[in-house]
């Protein structure tokens, strides 16, 4: 948690291997990402990381189910099998009936649920969420947070970045605060939700 520009998203991107540090090294689950080439990082993300963005980043030309299935298809999973798994995830997230709808028609909350489903598609060890409620109204934001907390309670490791202290204290078990690119504090929390 930290104010805008403190480096939260940069840190998240470096953990995902989307960005490289100008100095120092990034180790995730014992792997030094600085020693891995771009293809290796892509495979690392594919197998170990799921990402959720503030602005969803769905492909406009594909319906929800195909957006979700895409992550599996990139690994070579056959289309039918990928779609079946995508439908299961959409069902678990409560939007199975919106699977054939294009992103432009979905509400903000629904779009973020599709994004969550896509992030979970390859059963990642680590789910990274960058301001997942930042572009949502308060009601949709609450619903998405509930969803992420449920996932966490089911055993999914979640690293969430936010500037919203209320949100952070509500869902986090471990809170790291940042300012001007540095970690300024770290504490363990009792979840309030």
């Amino acid at each position: 948690m930290g104010p805008s520009g403190c480096g939260k998203s940069t840190l998240l991107n470096m953990i995902a291997g989307l960005d490289r540090p100008s100095a120092g090294s990034v180790c995730v689950d014992g792997e030094d990402l600085g020693r891995i080439n771009e293809t290796g990082l892509a495979l690392f993300r594919r197998r170990r990381i799921g990402m959720i963005f503030q602005f969803f980043n769905l492909i406009d030309d594909l319906p929800a189910i195909d957006n979700v299935a895409l992550a599996a298809q990139l690994t070579g999973t056959p289309a039918r099998q990928a779609r079946r798994r995508a439908l299961e995830l959409l069902d678990e997230l409560g939007i199975a009936d919106r699977g054939n709808v294009y992103p432009a028609v979905l509400s903000g909350g629904e779009r973020q649920r599709v994004a969550v489903a896509r992030a979970l598609m390859n059963r990642p060890a680590l789910l990274l969420a960058d301001e997942p409620t930042g572009a949502l109204d308060s009601q949709a934001g609450e619903q998405v947070m509930d969803l992420l907390i449920d996932l966490n309670e089911l055993g999914q490791t979640l690293l969430l970045v936010t500037h919203d202290e209320r949100l952070a204290t509500r869902c986090a078990s471990q809170l790291v605060t940042m300012a001007d690119g540095r970690i300024t504090g770290e504490r363990t929390l009792e979840r309030t939700a």
């Binding site: 293809t39 892509a42 993300r45 594919r46 980043n57 598609m121």
Partner: peptide
């Protein structure tokens, strides 16, 4: 570029 970024974030390799 946004779509490309998203595809990379979900594991699309440079070759792909």
């Amino acid at each position: 570029r946004r779509d490309l970024g998203m595809l990379k974030s979900i594991g699309m390799t440079p070759r792909q």
